[in-house]
Design a protein around this nucleic acid. Structure first.
Lengths: 143, 143
DNA sequence: TATTGTTATACTCTATAACTATA
DNA sequence: TATAGTTATAGAGTATAACAATA
C-alpha cells in the first residue's frame, strides 16, 4: 500500500524552500546596487501598487504581523523611500506612500526582479515557466 | 519598455514563500500526533533513505550549516529516533542512523506528508500537480 | 594543514504583551 | 470596547569563531 519512498529532495517542502533559496541567491546581488533588499523591494511593490494602503492592510497582505510591519516601514522611511501619512477619515491608520525616490527604486527593482526570475526559470520552457507561476498562484489562493 | 507592473502577489518570491507557509499550516497539525515537527521528519527522511550519511553530508544536502545539524541531530537523538555512530574508516565522522522507532516514525510521516501535499495540490489537476513538482525540481537542480 | 563535530555566542527574523491614540 | 500603531521583550532559527579529535 505504501508507495515508493519519497526522497527528501522530492518533498514539496524541500523543493519550495530550495527554490526560494536559489531565487534569493540570484536576486540579492542584483538588488544590492539599488541599496535595498528583496524584502524591502517587496514592500515598495506592495505599497506602490494600487490605492494607498495602511500598514495593517499591508501586513495582512504580506502575511506578517503588524509589529513586524512597523520595523519594515521604519527601514524604508529611514532610507527616504516611503513616508507615513495619517489616513483621512481614520486618524489611527497610517498610509504608506512612496516618495519620488521610492518610486524610482520600485521601478528599477521591478526590472531586476524580472531578470532574477528569468535566471531562475531558465531551465524551463516559457510555457512551463508560466504554468509554474499559475500553479503556485492557484495553490496559494486557496486560502 | 517596462511591462505591466508585477504585483507583489505575482512575484515568484511571494508565491514560493506563501506556498511554503500554506504547506506548513496543512502539514504540522498532521505531524504533531507523531511527536515530531516537519523539520525533524525531513531529517528522518534524509538519514533513513539510502546509504548511511554523516552529519556533514546531511547538512550539505539539506542546505544548512554543520553547526545547525548538530542541534537538529541532538533533538532526534533525545527522542530516541536516531543514534550517532563513528564512521568506520574516518573516525572524525558521525553516521546518523535511524533507530527502529525512528524508522516507524519515518514511515508514518511519509504517509502524512503525502496527505498534506495532496491537500495543498487539491486545486490542481493531477497532471498540473506533477508538472509543478517537476518544474520545481528542474529549477532547484540547476545549481 | 585540513576536516568533522562541538560549544559558545551573536545576529536576524518574527511574534506576544502592554501602552497610546483614536474610533 | 475595539482597532491601529508603537515599544519592549522574548523566542525561534541560523551562522561565525574557536576548540578538540582525527586525517
Amino acid at each position: 500500500m505504501s508507495s515508493a519512498p519519497l526522497a527528501v529532495t522530492q518533498r514539496l517542502g524541500y523543493l519550495l524552500k530550495h527554490a526560494q533559496l536559489r531565487l534569493a541567491e540570484l536576486a540579492e546581488p542584483l538588488y544590492a546596487p539599488l541599496g535595498v533588499t528583496g524584502r524591502q523591494l517587496a514592500l515598495l511593490t506592495l505599497f506602490g501598487d494600487g490605492p494607498a494602503r495602511s500598514q495593517q492592510d499591508g501586513a495582512a497582505r504580506l502575511g506578517v504581523d503588524r509589529t513586524t510591519m512597523v520595523a519594515l516601514v521604519d527601514e524604508l522611511e529611514a532610507k527616504g523611500l516611503v513616508r507615513r501619512e495619517v489616513a483621512p477619515g481614520d486618524r489611527r491608520k497610517r498610509l504608506v506612500l512612496l516618495t519620488p525616490e521610492g518610486e524610482r527604486v520600485r521601478e528599477a527593482g521591478a526590472e531586476v526582479t524580472r531578470k532574477a526570475e528569468a535566471l531562475l526559470l531558465e531551465p524551463l520552457s516559457a510555457e512551463d515557466a508560466e504554468r509554474l507561476r499559475a500553479a503556485l498562484h492557484q495553490v496559494v489562493r486557496a486560502e
